[in-house]
Write a protein that binds this DNA or RNA. Structure first.
Lengths: 253, 253
DNA sequence: ACTTGACCTTGCCCCTGGGGCAAGGTTCGA
DNA sequence: TCGAACCTTGCCCCAGGGGCAAGGTCAAGT
């Protein structure tokens, strides 16, 4: 009969790779990878070629696992274990800062995931989101609101700064009750025939609203042709009546 | 002169891959990977072969990025985007649970990292850690404490359950002042010559302490030969005097 | 009309941190 | 003495892209 301690008598290295891995809570494969990467020194082998580990390896392995769990890349761990204690302490500080940052990111991601559930706050800027919300509140149809949303998405992608300037303008406009009724009437006109007799009046009211606004505002924000055309073209593409209004507005101007 | 909107007039797809990627906060490469993985439909191409995206792609891409950031594998994301809304909601719940779990893990990892800074609480069980702490408090040399620590590490790796039983025993013993003075004397004897005349007396006191303890305890915990041998052999390997004491104790028994 | 720089295209190989499997050799407990 | 549970090396595979090559295209300035 043999005791395990008979094997130990010869030296301080008695753990098999499986025992070591189990102790540290890692897989056998991981231990071998750490050997390959020179993070953990290769221990002596016993007579049959098995690796035999001692307490010093166990300690080192727990350090490695702790750093790995903290998200430190293996190459960096190798540097750290070889460095002096003051660099090590400094590195630990930085690792802790990273961990805190990651916790914060998880917090934000959780909020995002919750918003993914419903709503479009995720796809547009907060300003645009509240603009869309106002549209819904004054009774604009969901179809038109979604059309607006898509327009803003495109706008923010193509020219984020001009989109920001324009949305500020729109947020101001929607505080005006006259603009609201005008918008609601536009919404209703979506399905009208392009020959509907009510269209010229709507175009005229639109023209008047813009005129009075431009009179009040001293320096109107430069009306970038790209963006205004983008808006009209996109809108016109979905509703023939809206396209007709744009045409009428151009003629009277 | 051409306006960007001239290109748009033909359809609703106007973003280049770079604009799209920039809007969603991902790299161009990532967008192409999502095409390869069938997460994001391939948009139409313009006359020169460039991909041209619309708002619907932007929305889809933001969803994808949000899920990717939450750590959802691409294959799973593909399933989710194709599934019905109730499965989607269910999946979001599970993802959120995972995120919370990860936040908790980060909290624990931060504590571990802090302990890595100094101390050996990471390498042994809490019971062993407090035992080692007691040894330091009664004045045992650091060298011997480290020797004990390494022994416990090996013990916990080879036979965790017996180590747990033994440490309970040791924690009881160290409450006995007689055991403490005995331990401190052992510590001092580490460097003695194996022929030192004080050794037999020390061996005799050891024998007596064990005898009286065994008399008090009715059922002594099965003295596993593997473990006791491990202890004696490991200890004896580092100090000839200790080896001599073990030999003396064996003779008198 | 030409150039320059920023984009776009496809294709291929590279990285991390291991997992899985093959094809053996070893040791343990009954 | 046998089967289960170890151990050994070696090789290929995965996600989620990054980097680079070798081109084609576009807008602006001169």
């Amino acid at each position: 009969m043999r005791f395990m301690s008979d094997e130990l008598a010869g030296g301080r290295h008695l753990l098999t790779i499986g025992q070591l891995a189990n102790y540290a809570g890692v897989t056998v494969k991981a231990v071998r990878v750490y050997h390959d990467r020179d993070l953990l020194p290769e221990p002596p082998r016993d007579s049959s070629g098995y690796r035999r580990y001692g307490a010093e390896h166990a300690i080192q392995l727990v350090k490695i696992r702790t750093l790995v769990e903290a998200g430190v890349p293996l190459a960096r761990i190798k540097e750290l274990l070889g460095a002096g204690p003051e660099q090590f302490a400094e590195a630990l500080d930085e690792i802790d800062r990273n961990l805190r940052k990651r916790a914060e990111e998880i917090r934000r991601t959780r909020q995002r995931i919750a918003q993914l559930h419903s709503g479009d706050r995720l796809f547009v800027s907060p300003e645009v989101a509240s603009y869309l919300q106002r549209l819904r509140e004054i009774g604009v149809s969901e179809r038109t609101v979604l059309l607006e949303r898509d327009l803003w998405i495109l706008l923010q992608s193509v020219a984020p700064e001009q989109a920001a300037a324009w949305i500020a303008d729109k947020l101001a406009a929607i505080a005006d009750p006259e603009f609201c009724t005008l918008y609601v009437d536009y919404d209703a006109a979506f399905d009208w025939s392009p020959n509907d007799p009510r269209l010229p009046a709507l175009a005229e009211r639109t023209r008047q609203w813009f005129t009075s606004r431009d009179a009040n505002a001293e320096a109107e924000p430069a009306p970038d042709p790209t963006i205004t055309q983008l808006a009209t073209v996109t809108a016109g593409a979905s509703s023939p009546a809206w396209a007709r209004i744009a045409e009428l507005a151009k003629q009277t101007r």
